[in-house]
C-alpha cells in the first residue's frame, strides 16, 4: 500500500476523533440491536406512550393503560440497533483520479467513519470493492493500521459486488464510499448492500473536476479506468450537457436510495480534505460531534 494512502488514513483517523457515528434519520430498516437508536424500536428500554394508530403492532398495546383509560395506547421502547459498521470502499481507479483529492478524501472519509464508529462503540469492518468485495486487512483495527488498500480496479464495481457477495454483519450499519461513476442499475448494489442491514448510507465522493469539467477547448479525455480516449471540443454547450448528465445520474442514485431506504450524500473531495468539516454527514445524522 502506498505510504500516501496511509497518511490519508491517518489524517482521517485524526479527523474522526471529533465525531461519533450516528444513525441516519431516514433509515427505515432499523431492527433490534445492541445500541439504542433514536427511533422507537424493540428494545426493552421504555421510551414513551402514544395513541394507537392503525397499522401499529397489536402486541405493543399497553393493556394496563387501556384498562385505566379505556383508550388504546401503544408503549414505545427505544430501538436497539446492532453496533457494527460495514464500510465498503470503492477500489476502482477513478477513486484515485490524478490531479484531484479524491483518493485522499475517500480514504480519509473511511477513516473518519471507522473512527467515529469506534467512538460510538461500534465495531467496524472495511471492505474494498474491486473485482469482488474483499475485506481490507486489519480493517477492524484503527484505520492507520489498515493494509492492502489498492485503488486500481478497472472493472464495473457492480460485477464485483454481485460476483462474490460480501458477508456483512446482520443488523449492522453499512456505508458505501464511491464516486458512483459507473454504468449499471444502482438498485443492484443497493439491494445487496441493504440486505440485512440496520441502515445504509451512500457517500458519493466527487472531485471538483468531476463536478466542473476541464478547461474549454480541444481536450482528449482519457477514462481513468479503461484508458479509453475521447476527443471532445468543450464549450459552454458541452459543459451544460455534462452537468445535465451528472444530475441525471445522481437523480437515478437518489431515487434508488430512497427506494432502498438508504441515504445518499454528495461530498466534494477538495472541499473536505482541507479542514475535514463534514457538515453534510453531521446534518443528516450520520456523524455526531
Amino acid at each position: 500500500m502506498e505510504e500516501a494512502i496511509r497518511q490519508f488514513l491517518l489524517e482521517g483517523e485524526r479527523a474522526g476523533m471529533r465525531y461519533s457515528l450516528g444513525t441516519p434519520r431516514s433509515n427505515a430498516a432499523l431492527t433490534s440491536g445492541l445500541q439504542l437508536g433514536q427511533r422507537a424500536g424493540s428494545s426493552l428500554e421504555f421510551r414513551e406512550h402514544r395513541d394507537y394508530q392503525a397499522g401499529d403492532d397489536l402486541r405493543r398495546i399497553d393493556w394496563n393503560a387501556y384498562a385505566r383509560s379505556d383508550k388504546l395506547t401503544i408503549k414505545l421502547f427505544r430501538d436497539e440497533i446492532s453496533p457494527h459498521l460495514d464500510l465498503v470502499l470503492d477500489g476502482s481507479c477513478s477513486m484515485a483520479l490524478e490531479e484531484s483529492s479524491k483518493l485522499q478524501a475517500s480514504t480519509g472519509l473511511a477513516a473518519v467513519l471507522a473512527t467515529a464508529a469506534e467512538n460510538a462503540g461500534y465495531t467496524h469492518k472495511t471492505w474494498l470493492l474491486r473485482d469482488w468485495c474483499e475485506p481490507v486487512a486489519n480493517s477492524s483495527n484503527r484505520p492507520s493500521l489498515w493494509d492492502n488498500l489498492e485503488f486500481d480496479y478497472r472493472g464495473n464495481p457492480v460485477e464485483g459486488f454481485t460476483r462474490v457477495p460480501p458477508k456483512f454483519r446482520r443488523q449492522g450499519m453499512r456505508a458505501l464510499i464511491s464516486d458512483l461513476l459507473w454504468l449499471g442499475e444502482p438498485s443492484r448494489v443497493l439491494q445487496q448492500l441493504a440486505q440485512g442491514a440496520s441502515s445504509v448510507f451512500v457517500i458519493q465522493v466527487l472531485a471538483a473536476a468531476d463536478l466542473n469539467p476541464p478547461e474549454r477547448g480541444r481536450v482528449r479525455l482519457v477514462d481513468s479506468e479503461t484508458d479509453e480516449e475521447r476527443e471532445i471540443y468543450i464549450d459552454d454547450r458541452a459543459i451544460s450537457r455534462y452537468r445535465d448528465a451528472l444530475a441525471r445520474h445522481q437523480q437515478n442514485w437518489l431515487r434508488a436510495c430512497r427506494q432502498a431506504g438508504s441515504v445518499l450524500v454528495e461530498i466534494v473531495s477538495e472541499r473536505i480534505v482541507s479542514s475535514w468539516e463534514l457538515v453534510e454527514l453531521v446534518k443528516i445524522g450520520i456523524l455526531k460531534i
Binding site: D179, L181, W182, D210, R218, L221, V222, I232, Y233, A245
Partner: peptide
C-alpha cells in the same frame, strides 16, 4: 489547434452523449 490537451477523467460515462468534434 489540432494539438489537443490530454485530461484524465473519472469516467467517460457522463461524456457519452457529447458529439464528436466537428473540427477534426
Amino acid at each position: 489547434r489540432s494539438q489537443t490537451r490530454k485530461r484524465k477523467v473519472s469516467s467517460l460515462l457522463l461524456w457519452l452523449d457529447q458529439r464528436e468534434m466537428w473540427e477534426g
